[in-house]
Design a binder for these strands. Structure first.
Lengths: 116, 116
DNA sequence: TGTTTCGTCAACCGATTGGTTGAATATGCG
DNA sequence: CGCATATTCAACCAATCGGTTGACGAAACA
């Protein structure tokens, strides 16, 4: 996966819209046809279709056409990448400071045998 | 918090830009003045100032003015909220540390080649 | 004091976004 | 076949985005 940054652009931009996040939530429960995805929203089917295209390009969902119905399926892999990226910032700093303090303690402590 | 959705809008939109993510990476290491944040980028100080405003409104950083210098500090809490939201899609297991570590290696190791 | 440094503001620009509508393209059905 | 259903396409729109430049205020310093 060479250009992670461009992928993160697309994934985060896809997530930065409440309609699209709502669609992802719906797809958590089950795969859905485009028309059924659109049903709860007060906007045109074409608008939902565009949202689904954006989610697909982000890799967050996949779409498979069976007959005249296009089924939408959640694809959590892209989400995992972004989540991992965010965990880096969510945990790095506090963990780091904490670990650093402990490190200093163990370094300065007399006869500190390492445990884990 | 019922209007967490609006906050997620702002946080994800803030993250959906490589310049802003790069700024967050820089602030991982230490707090920085606005001018120093801007220095590696090939764009105007005003542009960076706007990016910092967006990051601040997202709660991802905070800014404190001391003298005529405005210091920028990473605030990982907002990121953690968004990360928690994403784990709501955790049909998959929560972010495993293997992936996290591997990510940090690939992301932070070649930081020296982060020329611009 | 006058000047330099730090950072924002205001106005502007082109590109993108999120939505609309109406027409078009498939596919399934009686 | 003819018609309804499912979905996208194309054109358009207002609003927002990411950037620029120049002017500006506030703090430090000679």
């Amino acid at each position: 996966m060479p250009d992670m940054s461009a992928q993160l652009d697309i994934v985060f931009a896809a997530l930065a819209d409440p309609t699209r996040r709502s669609i992802l939530s719906m797809l958590l429960e089950d795969d859905m046809a485009v028309t059924d995805v659109a049903e709860p929203f007060e906007m045109s089917l074409a608008a939902i279709s565009k949202h689904l295209t954006i989610l697909t390009r982000a890799g967050l969902i996949s779409q498979e056409k069976r007959g005249r119905v296009k089924w939408c399926k959640l694809e959590p892999d892209a989400l995992r990448d972004a989540s991992v990226w965010m965990q880096g910032f969510g945990q790095f700093e506090p963990v780091n400071l904490d670990a650093f303090e402990k490190f200093l303690e163990t370094q300065l402590a007399p006869a500190a045998s390492d445990s884990d």
